[in-house]
Design a protein around this nucleic acid. Structure first.
Lengths: 155, 155
DNA sequence: TTAATCTGGACAAATTTAGTCTGGTTTTGG
DNA sequence: CCAAAACCAGACTAAATTTGTCCAGATTAA
């Protein structure tokens, strides 16, 4: 149980942007120079974030990406939903909402042959995570300093 | 973000076993007849559960599987750890513990080039889920009745 | 003994994730 | 104007992971 690299890389990009002065735009080239990600892959990720109205972009020379709103207004929840959302099993709709019970038209349909009490558990999991991630903003993540004692950079 | 079918199928099997009288053993054949799972796949899952001391098995004619302890003593946490545990990214060790920071020898090493404040977030996620799943027993899941209003069986 | 059952490991198929490639379009500075 | 710098879009490929299958062997009750 994990998030994909899209969420990981996307978060690193957003943290990078959050540390710039508000409104200042950033090019993919610049991010890639710092983080050594694949430029074309980061493009994809930023496009997802743009569709979700988390970043805005400007085309053309002097173009780039910037946060669409203050970092204190962007929650981890919306970032994760934007980036995990394209997966076959996405955070908000499939996994914990209807894990053992896909929705067919307007009814929840359990595909197991004996009834089980799992749905409330997955539902509560989703509630827990939504509440937690909904309470964390990009500002917090970008500000927070790692515990130097346990955290060492490579290069 | 989801659990694999191993966890899903495994839970269904355990619920099936929990509803038998204590100590009564169950064959794969019997489970498969009820749930229409692949027998060979269920074998693999039950072997994982056996290794984790959640079920015990008896070989030979009249053999089968039974819960290794009372269903009230088996938590969802240990079931999930047993079944997701073999994955490359497992619940207890990799994902939320050290998502952006693999452990190399005895130090946590952040592979990103700019520091980020994500580790405490994944750590807290793990704590939340461990606490929640640690508090739910197989007995509870096996007992609980689905809300018939929203939950319809197929077949 | 023998049929029923679990055991264990190699193997294969399907799915998903991760990443590349290529040819666009838009904008702006000279 | 126009060429360079940047984003846009989508098909495509490769790698990794999940989801199984197959089967010979070990064990045990009847």
């Amino acid at each position: 149980m994990r998030f994909t690299t899209k969420t990981e890389y996307g978060l690193v990009c957003l943290i990078y942007m959050a540390r710039k002065s508000p409104g200042q735009s950033v090019t993919i080239k610049e991010i890639v120079k710092t983080e050594r990600f694949s430029a074309t892959y980061i493009e994809k990720i930023l496009q997802k974030l743009r569709t979700a109205n988390i970043v805005i972009s400007h085309q053309g020379k002097q173009g780039g990406y910037a946060l669409a709103k203050a970092s204190s207004e962007i929650t981890l929840k919306e970032i994760i939903e934007a980036l995990e959302g394209g997966s076959t099993f996405d955070v908000s709709l499939n996994t914990f909402g209807v894990f053992c019970a896909p929705q067919i038209r307007d009814r929840i349909v359990c595909t197991h042959f004996s009834m089980c009490g799992l749905r409330p558990v997955w539902h509560k999991t989703k509630e827990l995570l939504d509440h937690f991630y909904g309470s964390i903003t990009l500002e917090t993540i970008a500000k927070e300093e790692p515990e130097v004692k346990n955290l060492v950079t490579v290069n």
